[in-house]
Amino acid sequence: MSFWTAVVIIVIVGAIASVLKARYNAQHGITEDMMGNQTLNVREDRNEAAEAAQAEVAELKERIKVLERIATDANSADAQERARISAEIESLRTPDQTPASPTPANKEDLSE
């Protein structure tokens, strides 16, 4: 490999590195002034996305609280008592399946 081939390869590697660095900085909102100082510019669309993500996390936390309450309340004595009372009320709401007049077997029992 000659000296000039090595120089060309070094220049190409440097150019590729600077392009990749500029691409990375552009993707992350980093700008550079004339003095070489880098500053981070926060984009509005990223702020909106962060706010939406925070709102979704808050909603999911609320859902988890409800699920935890459901899981723990069903096993408490108070919840079991409410379930028993609710079942009793429902059984009273449904009409009884007993006939109004006694069956023939019942008539024999009654006549004796």
Rank of each mutant, 00 (worst) to 15 (best):
P95R: 06
E48G: 03
A105D: 15
N25L: 04
E48H: 02
A53F: 06
I9Q: 14
Y24K: 08
M35N: 15
E59H: 08
R63F: 02
A22Q: 13
T103A: 02
R63T: 04
K107H: 11
T103I: 01
L20N: 10
E108L: 05
K65T: 06
E90H: 00
A100I: 13
I64S: 05
A52W: 00
I85H: 06
M1T: 15
A74Q: 14
T31V: 13
Q38W: 06
E68D: 14
S101L: 08
Q38T: 06
V42R: 07
E108S: 10
E62P: 00
N75T: 15
L40P: 01
Q80T: 04
E51R: 07
S111W: 13
R69V: 00
A71W: 07
A26D: 15
A52Y: 02
T39A: 04
A17G: 07
K21P: 03
A50S: 05
E59F: 02
P95K: 05
G14T: 15
A26G: 10
K61R: 09
S101G: 10
Q54H: 04
N25C: 09
L110R: 09
I85T: 09
E48T: 10
A6S: 12
H28G: 12
K61V: 06
I12E: 15
N41K: 05
A58S: 05
S2E: 15
I70P: 02
M34S: 14
E112W: 07
R43F: 01
N47W: 04
N41I: 11
E90F: 00
I30R: 04
I9S: 15
L67T: 12
L92M: 11
A50Y: 06
K65H: 10
Q97N: 14
H28C: 07
R63M: 02
A105H: 14
R93C: 03
I9L: 14
M34W: 13
M34N: 13
L60P: 00
D96I: 05
S86H: 07
M1E: 15
T5A: 12
K21C: 11
N75P: 03
Q38C: 04
E90N: 00
V66A: 07
T98Y: 01
A100S: 11
A52Q: 02
G36W: 00
S86M: 01
R43C: 01
N106F: 00
N75W: 08
V8D: 15
N41G: 04
R69K: 08
E56D: 07
Q27Y: 11
Q38I: 02
L20W: 09
I30C: 00
Q38K: 12
I10Y: 09
R63H: 08
R82N: 08
E44C: 00
D33Q: 03
L40C: 07
T72M: 05
E81G: 09
A55V: 01
V57G: 04
I89N: 02
Q54I: 03
E56Y: 02
E44Q: 12
I64L: 06
M35Y: 12
I10T: 14
S76Y: 02
A26C: 03
A87I: 03
V42F: 01
A58L: 03
S101C: 09
E112Q: 12
